[in-house]
């Protein structure tokens, strides 16, 4: 069941998007999140969809896999859709069924906002799918570096993030193992009353917490044993390299923003 989740997973492959500097990808995404709010009509949303699918194409991630992995979002999107369709009361009424009235603007809003949400998730999944966690944190740290002057703990934040990202798969595996061990002892996680099911989480959570704390302690000791003393004066083994195509990608998003600005109504 956890196997299908693609949220936060990295799919190592060889493509234009995979080769991009993680900083460029972060910049592109940040800009994209800003730009997406410019769209407000058919044409501008069309351009956004085109851009998103062109990015997916350039990353060589199989579209079917991406959509399958995001299927759990379907319900959230559906919920947003209905929320807007029922609660926006502007424009002409285009459909009446008993007490339900659907307005023209409502329908439009529902479609546009769900689409916007969907595109955002697609683009951000593309980031984690094409960039290794280490690269994401390195990029983040490098982009946030100017904040160090304001005494913002950039290095610590990046370290926390990379450790968290590093241990997500480990914790997932661990969960899977303990789940199976307790199922072998007769726990049924998917049947019974709500109270029973809530109780059945205890044999899962306690071992999980214990092993997580143990791991954290071991990691801290291992880091200290190898001379870790915080970020002061620390150099990097892996250097990021901003290439021509990274500038190009950033310019593309700016161009996208320009286009949307011109064509929005």
């Amino acid at each position: 069941m956890m196997e299908k989740m693609i949220f936060g997973r990295y799919l190592p492959m060889e493509s234009f998007v995979h080769r991009m500097d993680p900083r460029a990808k972060l910049v592109v995404i940040t800009l994209f999140i800003g730009v997406i709010f410019l769209a407000n009509n058919l044409l501008t949303y069309g351009i956004l969809v085109l851009f998103t699918f062109a990015s997916i194409f350039a990353s060589k991630i199989p579209i079917k896999f991406l959509l399958n992995g995001l299927s759990f979002l379907f319900w959230i999107i559906l919920f947003t859709f209905f929320l807007h369709i029922f609660f926006t009361r502007e424009g002409d009424v285009i459909f009446t069924f008993g007490w339900i009235k659907i307005y023209e603007h409502g329908l439009q809003q529902a479609i546009f906002i769900s689409l916007r949400f969907f595109l955002l998730v697609l683009i951000t999944s593309l980031l984690t799918l094409t960039t290794s966690p280490i690269d994401i944190t390195d990029g983040m740290e490098s982009l946030l570096n100017p904040l160090k002057k304001l005494r913002f703990p950039v290095h610590e934040l990046a370290l926390m993030m990379s450790i968290a990202l590093r241990f997500i798969p480990t914790l997932m595996d661990e969960t899977d193992k303990i789940l199976k061990a307790q199922m072998a002892r007769g726990v049924n996680f998917s049947e019974g009353s709500l109270k029973k099911r809530a109780q059945s989480v205890v044999p899962l959570l306690i071992p999980l917490f214990i092993s997580a704390f143990k791991r954290a302690e071991e990691l801290a000791i291992a880091m200290e044993a190898r001379g870790y003393r915080g970020g002061e004066g620390r150099t990097k083994y892996r250097l990021l390299k901003w290439k021509g195509m990274d500038t190009l990608a950033a310019l593309l998003v700016i161009l996208l923003g320009g286009l949307l600005y011109v064509f929005r109504s």
Partner: peptide, 12 residues
């Protein structure tokens, strides 16, 4: 009955 690798991790 299955006893997994490192079964001590299942005690709670």
């Amino acid at each position: 009955g299955i006893v997994f690798q490192f079964p001590e991790h299942q005690l709670f």
